[in-house]
Design a protein around this nucleic acid. Sequence first.
DNA 1: CTAGAGATTCTCT
DNA 2: GAGAATCTCTAGG
Length: 213
Amino acid sequence: MIAPPDRTPLPREFFDRPVLEVAPDLLGRILVRSTPDGPIAVRLTEVEAYDGPNDPGSHAYRGRTPRNDVMFGPPGHVYVYFTYGMWFCMNLVCGPDGTASAVLLRAGEVVEGAELARKRRLSARNDKELAKGPARLATALDVGRALDGTDACAAGETPLKMLTGTPIARDQVRNGPRTGVSGDGGVHPWRFWIANDPTVSPYRAHAPRRRSS
DNA sequence: CTAGAGATTCTCT
DNA sequence: GAGAATCTCTAGG
């Protein structure tokens, strides 16, 4: 008998901690996206930590720019970036205002609104693939540039909100090198996931593409 | 399951 | 102009 997930919103103080504490603690939490057609909710199963100016793999490593501005702001807000010409990915900003650390949401299990997520993810062959990968997760939740900077801890009706869910016991959390990150040589084992969870994305080593002739 | 390559445009140098 | 915190398709085991 498993207790139902706690639908209480996560308080801002949850995110106002060192990113390496927040990242594993986000596993099992629930992110709710409110859309005009209804809610879509995802239980987080895989995340990665990015530690601001100390971290060569972070978008904030070379300082503040218009793109990464939200990372330098207050905790609990959503940093959305566009990459590879096609995809959006989303992060939750951690630490006090000015610290530029964030957690990339890499994968999750759709626990509500699956019929809405399927319409956004037509290539998914089964429901486990709906949010298996950072761009897939953002696509399933209809998260794009318009939601960059959204406060996921604000009171009332908001487009995105983090709920308490059911935290994962320490012995069920695994960690290892981050996926697809150039610049840190894979030295930081800051990718965290739930052991044996079928919605965790497969590891792909970073392989910079070559130009065609 | 694994591996390779194309897609497509933004961002910063 | 280079390269990107990726995904999908194809081919092969």
